[in-house]
Design a binder for these strands. Structure first.
Length: 803
DNA sequence: AGCACGCCGACT
DNA sequence: GTCGGCGTGCTC
């Protein structure tokens, strides 16, 4: 039989299947969806079997070397989904497969030099003798570093050395070694008595097993008896003890207990919202629901009870949660309800932990997966529901190849499995809400908070006014009063700082000169930890200069209203307030995120000060004031979604206040109070915001009225970039319909990264069935230049970041 | 992406 | 005459 294989070479020319003969011995072993090792040119590489057929058009077939899996890692559905994904994103097939699997399954390659078996080290050139004296292989990279390649090549030509390629697994399955007696208790006693007197340690071991005949983890035995593994080894050799390895999962939540929860009684609104979902599950229909419920309206309980129903039907559930809110709190809610039927996938896990969670899914040992974006590819075969929480979050769009949106994948998979997709949000994306209004999605609404708690009152403070009245601090008078009042009443405060847009850069106070990266047109970010400035795009690092390079002033210092600065300021004005700061610096260590939140919940602090990461999911009864220090930092980004993002963020943050008995208050500080996204966030009026923003989008030909596609071209030479971009704009322009609008060529918002100049071209269109084909031929046309002269063309159909 | 093959310049 | 530069084209 013949296997069609997609090889692990991400390039235009190899983006197709290659046929291999399946060796006789592997005839019923090799299945579609398996990883295999195949010869490719002179090398050995990994590949995915996509299909098996009786014959091939190709004559000189090579054989598959070996399978890498016992069972396929990709189901038929996922293989098919790979085709769909490559079609939608113009990515390589191999990248599509790779993105669907845990990184642990990606092959690692090694290139080595090996001395031929019949050759003795002494017969090699002098510098090589020592190397091959004790080893028969030597790493290629090492040889290259030592400058030994040319000698080795000569030996290779004489047939004394050969080049070997190896394909290796990235990680091993974790095993634990156990020991148990191989003989009966009586025999153990006999054996012990027969042992020579000097074998005291071995006697101890036997004695132990006489009292404890069950198997024990060998590590534990060694530490209990204080013996070395040599003692055990000899007993194993004598066939008295048996050593066995058991495969175990690396369980990131191993030592945690989750209190079990029972389904809560639903409110009338919840009841009304869940009914259509349950019916859809019951009738095995494919349908997309938009669950639009204000913050604190009980969306999670709807998710939980829908999943309950799915599990009872013997089917499986995928729950997507934005990375940032995939906190232990969130995990607790699912593990609490469904116990060990839940797998969790997020970026905080190690490679091995992710792999193990994935294997639980593959082996159907769990029926629910809670995870970030990539969990949408969980290899379930009987999906009953897909839930995407915080549906509007932009992190569901992957920003490198394949540039997929988890929402689109969810819909595609739901069609295959005939199951509902539930998109939940308090501030739905414009795209989804528009679709719900058109009837493409079914809209479910939860208009009220649980137990009828009122939404917090929101006050918008004009910081220009504050400045005019002589208040130069970062806290308005109202906010300061509010904080003081809460401190007195022993209630808690959340202060939110939106750092995006202007993170901590270094600027000269005299001339305004900002220190930029020498390779990229972007300011360097100050890192307090090592007192250095770093470029987030190319990794360039340097120390803060003592003097301004422009005007030689010494008043050069680190700028930007960072959380540390706010913390300092708070310490000056309100020294009695206890503050917990949460940002990348304080939460980088594993588990620190959770610890800080626990401390805050336990009342060990009055104020929680943080960035993005505290905008979601916090649900503490004692928070009665939320302050947003500057609402408009992200409003001025060059992005047509900036208003939408601002509105969503403000609404989310506001939702942190007054979720329980105590009433909440929100204070938003801004320099542009008249902007509709801020004004309407203040009113918590999504519907008016929606209408208003839709008008803007229509006016400027943006989604959801138009589709957009972004082409970014980069090269070391500016002239080259400009001319290629011009040609591309022209090429596309003559091929699309006249309703399409082409913007560009223009320089990208970040015009240079890592010394490569970047230009872009944006296509807006309503209906271009041929666009995909046009773009593919475009890539074909530039294929050689992209391979040889370092030209890069990236295409994003439906981009979320326009930079 | 690698890697081999192949065709031109500066060296013992 | 040969070592080595990197353009070109192939990999079942």
């Amino acid at each position: 039989m013949i296997a069609s294989v997609i090889v692990d070479v991400p390039a235009k020319q190899t983006d197709r299947s290659f046929d291999y003969k399946i060796p006789e011995s592997l005839n019923d072993v090799i299945k579609p969806g398996m990883r295999v090792v195949v010869p490719f040119g002179p090398r050995k590489i990994q590949g995915f079997v996509v299909s098996i057929k009786p014959q091939s058009d190709f004559k000189k077939l090579k054989e598959i070397i070996e399978p890498m899996d016992l069972y396929p890692v990709l189901t038929d559905e996922l293989l098919e989904l790979g085709d769909w994904l490559t079609d939608k994103t113009l990515a390589y097939k191999i990248s599509a497969f790779q993105v669907m699997l845990p990184a642990a399954l990606k092959a690692k390659y090694e290139k080595k030099l090996r001395i031929m078996p019949s050759v003795t080290p002494e017969s090699l050139a002098a510098p090589l003798q020592a190397i091959f004296k004790n080893n028969d292989t030597y790493s290629w990279d090492e040889a290259s570093n030592q400058g030994l390649l040319s000698i080795l090549q000569k030996e290779a030509n004489r047939g004394k050395i050969e080049v070997v390629y190896e394909v290796k697994e990235r990680i091993k399955k974790k095993t634990i070694k156990y020991l148990l007696p191989k003989v009966t208790k009586e025999e153990l006693i006999n054996l012990m008595n027969e042992m020579p007197a000097n074998a005291s340690k071995q006697k101890e071991v036997l004695n132990f097993f006489i009292d404890h005949p069950k198997q024990i983890e060998s590590r534990e035995l060694l530490s209990v008896l204080g013996i070395s593994s040599a003692t055990v080894k000899s007993l194993v050799k004598k066939n008295i003890l048996l050593e066995k390895s058991l495969e175990v999962y690396r369980d990131p939540y191993e030592d945690r207990k989750f209190d079990t929860t029972k389904p809560l009684p639903l409110s009338e609104d919840q009841e009304k919202a869940i009914r259509p979902i349950l019916t859809t599950i019951e009738e095995k229909l494919q349908k997309v629901f938009l669950l639009y419920g204000v913050t604190g309206s009980g969306k999670t309980e709807i998710y939980l009870q829908s999943i309950q129903q799915v599990i009872e039907k013997g089917r499986e559930a995928i729950v997507l949660v934005p990375e940032i809110s995939l906190t232990p709190q969130m995990v607790k809610r699912f593990k609490g309800r469904f116990g060990n039927k839940v797998a969790v996938l997020h970026s905080g896990l190690s490679l091995g932990e992710k792999y193990d969670e994935w294997r639980k899914i593959q082996r159907k040992e769990v029926s629910v997966v809670v995870g970030a974006r990539s969990a949408i590819f969980a290899p379930f075969e009987n999906l009953g529901i897909i839930i995407i929480d915080e549906e509007h979050e932009t992190s569901y769009k992957q920003e490198d190849n394949p540039r997929y949106h988890a929402r689109d994948v969810a819909v595609q998979r739901s069609i295959f499995h005939r199951c509902p997709v539930v998109l939940g949000s308090a501030t739905p994306s414009l795209e989804s809400f528009a679709r719900a209004k058109k009837g493409v999605y079914e809209l479910l609404t939860l208009p009220k908070r649980m137990n009828n708690h009122a939404l917090p009152s929101v006050q918008i403070i004009d910081m220009r006014e504050e400045l005019r009245e002589g208040n130069r601090s970062m806290f308005s008078r109202s906010l300061l009063e509010g904080i003081k009042a809460r401190l007195e009443k022993k209630e808690q405060i959340v202060l939110f700082l939106n750092k995006r847009g202007h993170s901590s850069f270094v600027m000269c106070r005299d001339c305004g000169y900002v220190i930029n990266c020498p390779n990229c047109d972007i300011s360097l970010t100050y890192h307090r930890a090592n007192q250095q400035m770093k470029c987030h795009y190319c990794g360039y690092e340097s120390f803060v200069p003592k003097q301004c390079p422009e005007c030689s002033s010494e008043h050069i210092r680190y700028f930007g209203t960072g959380t540390q600065k706010v913390e300092e300021e708070l310490g000056k004005i309100l020294p009695e307030a206890r503050v917990i700061r949460m940002d990348v610096d304080t939460t980088s260590r594993k588990g620190s995120h959770e610890r800080l939140l626990d401390d805050f919940q336990a009342g060990k602090a009055d104020i929680l000060l943080g960035t993005q990461m505290i905008a979601k999911g916090l649900d503490f009864p004692n928070i009665t004031l939320v302050g947003v220090l500057s609402a408009d930092t992200m409003l001025h980004l060059p992005d047509f979604r900036s208003s939408e993002k601002t509105f969503q963020l403000l609404t989310q943050v506001s939702g942190r206040a007054g979720r329980h008995e105590l009433e909440g208050e929100v204070i938003i500080q801004t320099y542009t109070p008249e902007h509709y996204s801020i004004e309407l966030a203040g009113e918590q009026n999504f519907d008016r915001f929606f209408d208003r923003e839709m008008m803007m989008r229509k006016l400027h030909h943006y989604p959801p009225f138009y589709y957009i596609t972004l082409i970014t071209i980069s090269h070391e030479n500016v002239m080259k970039v400009v001319s290629v971009t011009e040609n591309i704009a022209k090429y596309v322009g003559t091929r699309v319909s006249k309703d399409a609008i082409i913007l560009g060529p223009v320089a990208s918002p970040i015009p240079r990264i890592n010394n490569r100049y970047r230009y872009q071209c944006l296509i807006k269109y309503k209906r271009e069935p041929d666009l995909s084909r046009i773009l593919k031929s475009l890539l074909d046309h530039y294929q050689q230049e992209m391979a040889s002269s370092g030209l890069q063309i990236s295409i994003d159909l439906n981009p979320y970041i326009l930079m």
